[in-house]
Amino acid sequence: MRASIARRLQINAALTTDTLTAFLREEVEKAGFDRVIFGLSGGIDSAVVAYLATRAFGPKRVRAVMMPYRTSHPSSLADARAVVAALGIPSVVIDITGPVDAYFKQVDEVLGVAASPLRRGNRMARERMCTLFDLSAHDQALVLGTSNKTELLLGYGTQFGDLASAINPIGDLYKCQVRQLARYLGVPQPILDKPPSADLWADQTDEKELGFTYDEADEVLFQLVDLRLSPDELIADGYPPALVTAIARRVQRNQYKRRTPVIAKVSGRTVGLDFRYLRDWGL
């Protein structure tokens, strides 16, 4: 990453933490809740959310849910447990192998073909979402999102799966900024050091699957999105055309994942179009 861009992606971690903890407290309490729940994968994003939530609510009002599948790397669960232990927060382990395997046993038979890794991965992400929202009803808690700005822009997540949440404290932070925040919050070192992975199949890493590194993505996305430069301007500035084009195309193609479903307008006033209220309406 060029030094000039890295400098502009530097965050004031203390101020960011104050903002995000205030955000969590106010948005949750306004909605009439006093507890939160979130999936804890063993990765850096959900670890940062765990640290922020614990700062915002104290250890007694949060719950971490670990949802391994049989192919999940054992170190994922171990890293998640390290976060739980460090924060002293309530947690629960719900193995999703049973429901996911039962589903594909039936569906593979009906369709007569084995599901692709992508379909299996998406099903796992959605099984975790179902589990979290069910437990949130049991706990009377709001579900926290753990997708960062890089993932949201790239559309690197499962619609109605890991992208689903009530509120998301880290969705406006690029991956490199989540790392800075993680260091400030004291996230355990092994989580900071390991390569990011959705851990949906063996040896998966995000960067291998995406075809570029998070640093490359952040450097390009920051200039496309925050600085409003065009792909052509970045290419003229010396960035590899294949990289810039791949990222720009992903951002555009996955816009649908960032929006609610499109509604056909037939009336004078339509939900999502000219029926305009904040979600905080009445809170």
Binding site: T19, A22, F23, E26, L278, D280
Partner: peptide, 8 residues
């Protein structure tokens, strides 16, 4: 101060 739909 305060937040409205994530805007602080």
């Amino acid at each position: 101060v305060g937040f409205e739909d994530g805007v602080g």
